[in-house]
């Protein structure tokens, strides 16, 4: 619980910090899967997800920046689970050529998952329908991105990105499947919301 509160405060701090000047917003849709990372790129069937987040630059130079991100997301993995997650990532972006950038992110998150099917709980010697309180998961992640700034050289220009995110779900099933590995393939856009008088 303490971990979730700390994470939530990081997300909130970054959001408020962004709002004080200008607010980078990253929105993506993604396809999630249970898979061994780097053995598959695009998987079927599609299990959809959506993510929204913000970023804060620790250090920005002409060709690179080191930043912190914070995000909220939701996914629906058919027949298996749906989850609401929040997390933060330490990211490094490097401009490769014109508007083309490569990026890597190391993240830590929390996801609360719920079954997508009717659940029966064993209590008092029999199975009963009970409300699904869900399952708590730590969700560390590692991502590789390719992005394209629509106006090369302008850090505030909208950026389209494709993100290959590998992540693990822990604990998954104690004494049975301790850790579950996943891939999220994101397609998204990052843009800046300028506040009046903001200095971006």
């Amino acid at each position: 619980m303490r971990f979730v509160l700390v994470l939530a405060s990081v997300v909130l701090t970054l959001a408020l910090h962004g709002q004080a000047r200008s607010w980078p917003v990253a929105v993506s849709v993604f396809n999630t899967s249970t898979a061994v990372p780097y053995t598959r790129f695009f998987t079927t069937p599609v299990h959809p997800g959506i993510q929204a987040g913000t970023e804060y630059d620790h250090r920005a130079r002409a060709r690179s920046r080191l930043f912190q991100s914070a995000y909220l997301n939701y996914f629906y993995h058919g027949h298996l689970a749906q989850g609401i997650g929040l997390g933060t990532e330490l990211g490094y972006e490097h401009r490769v050529w014109r508007g083309l950038v490569a990026e890597t992110r190391l993240g830590l998150g929390y996801t609360h998952t719920f079954t997508t099917a009717e659940e029966f709980t064993f209590a008092n010697g029999r199975y009963e329908r009970k409300g699904d309180r869900g399952n708590a998961r730590f969700t560390p992640s590692f991502s590789l991105d390719l992005g394209w700034y629509l106006r090369p050289g302008d850090r505030n220009a909208p950026k389209l990105f494709l993100r290959y995110q590998s992540w693990v779900e822990y604990p998954y099933s104690p004494d049975f499947i301790p850790v579950m590995t996943h891939i999220n393939l994101h397609l998204g856009v990052r843009f800046i919301i300028q506040r009046k008088g903001g200095d971006a």
């Binding site: 027949h79 079954t115 099917a117 009717e118 659940e119 029966f120 709980t121 064993f122 199975y127 699904d132 399952n135 998954y172 099933s173 104690p174 004494d175 049975f176």
Partner: peptide, 17 residues
Amino acid sequence: GYVDLYSNLQVIESTYY
């Protein structure tokens, strides 16, 4: 069929799985 996928005796149906 039912599975206790998360080791907590909370089962979901798996007849088609």
